[in-house]
């Protein structure tokens, strides 16, 4: 498991993994889209608009997952002085921002026919918007410092401070009465979703994970190369 903290080992593993990940993402995406558009049933209340869920939910999960990964790597970077954590922070932040943006846009496209409005100031929606702005601030911080060592450490501290938002996003539907529905799958009891909808949802989730992984591998490799040239 050393490739998770060591840049040269990561490069070796990434060379093996990249092509299978890319192929898997293409296959899973086509399979998932076929399932989502043709093989999954309509909802009895929402009709065909329920198919937005197959994009909305995976992107929301991955937005949170990306931030959680950044938090863990910030801790390793600051506490154990492993510079690979800072590489991950720089490389992965735009991916998380894009996933959050997809989540917000698809959610508002879903909200217009179902709730009658593009946007409400509800706890879940507001906290996700704050998550998006935190990602944007991280990207801007990466651009605006001149000293590299200061930049990566300050960004890591900001990621740690901003991780307060993660439990708020997760539990906002339980703590407040929101228009957004509470969790149906990631809860302790049995998921309250039908298998005919859960299978396409999981296929789409894995497809999103594979796409995110492929882009992340490319970005991390670029970041490692740019740091090598910086040092020379």
């Amino acid at each position: 498991m050393k490739f998770l903290v060591n840049p040269s080992k990561f490069n070796k593993v990434a060379d093996y993994v990249f092509l299978p990940v890319l192929i898997a993402s293409i296959i899973l995406f086509s399979l998932g889209l076929i399932f989502a558009f043709y093989l999954s049933p309509d909802d009895y209340q929402q009709g065909s608009t329920v198919r937005i869920m197959y994009v909305h939910v995976p992107s929301a999960w991955l937005a949170l997952l990306t931030y959680a990964i950044m938090t863990i790597y910030s801790v390793t970077g600051l506490a154990f002085r492993i510079p690979f954590g800072f590489i991950i922070n720089t490389a992965v932040a735009p991916i998380g921002a894009v996933f959050t943006l997809i989540c917000i846009i698809s959610g508002s496209l879903w909200g217009k026919p179902m709730w009658g409005t593009w946007w409400v100031w509800d706890a879940r929606l507001t906290s996700v918007a704050i998550l998006f702005i935190i990602y944007i601030i991280i990207i801007f911080m990466n651009l605006s410092f001149e000293n590299r060592i200061v930049r990566e450490k300050v960004v890591a501290i900001f990621v740690l401070v901003g991780s307060i938002n993660l439990p708020i996003v997760k539990f906002s539907v339980d703590w407040w009465n929101t228009l957004h529905q509470p969790a149906t799958i990631s809860k302790l009891s049995k998921p309250s979703i039908d298998p005919s909808m859960m299978i396409p949802l999981f296929i789409m989730t894995f497809a999103f994970i594979m796409v995110g992984l492929a882009i992340a591998i490319l970005r991390i490799k670029t970041e490692i190369i740019s740091r090598k040239s910086y040092l020379n």
Partner: peptide, 17 residues
């Protein structure tokens, strides 16, 4: 402190939290 280009970011951080 070391951010010479974009200090407005500091205000944005305070406002978002």
């Amino acid at each position: 402190l070391m951010n010479q280009r974009n200090f407005l970011l500091g205000s944005v951080i305070v406002m978002i939290f």
